[in-house]
Amino acid sequence: MKGMTIIVKIISGWVKVLIFLFGIYIILFGHLTPGGGFAGGVILASCYVLLMLAFGREFVEENLPLPLASKLDCVGALAFAVIAILGLVLGGSFFINFLYQKYLPGEALNLISAGTIPLSNLAIGLKVATSLFLVILVLSMFRPDMSGDKKE
């Protein structure tokens, strides 16, 4: 039997929704309340780590396979770079907040405000979540089979 006892499995099955929702909240409201892309991304990654500890690695790998996580990681990094370069193209300077200054000023303290900052938060959150998930997945896959490799 993979994973931990039935108590841990059921409790983590309930709690994972709350943790995931809290991570998304931290990312989305990063420009209004404390938090941001990095903290929210780590919370999302730790939600997957909880599932991995409770249900075993195979369960998580079915849910979010390694190639998909790797691609999401690249998408997050690419989105952040694209936001930076769009600032150069549309606003005239690298990383300028073109959305706030020209197109979508928004109202302060609203969810849709601050231009590119929420978008950057989303990109960073996606990137950090998938990267840390990948670290733990790769480390748990890693088995130092020294006895078999020495003969080669």
């Binding site: 990063g30 420009h31 209004l32 309340t33 404390p34 941001g36 892309g37 907040n97 706030y100 000023p105 928004g106 302060a108 303290l109 405000s113 601050a114 231009g115 590119t116 900052i117 950057s120 938060n121 960073i124």
Partner: peptide, 12 residues
């Protein structure tokens, strides 16, 4: 920047 969280406005 329009961001209410000053830390976010500095780092992003």
């Amino acid at each position: 920047t329009g961001a209410a969280n000053l830390v976010a406005s500095v780092i992003l």
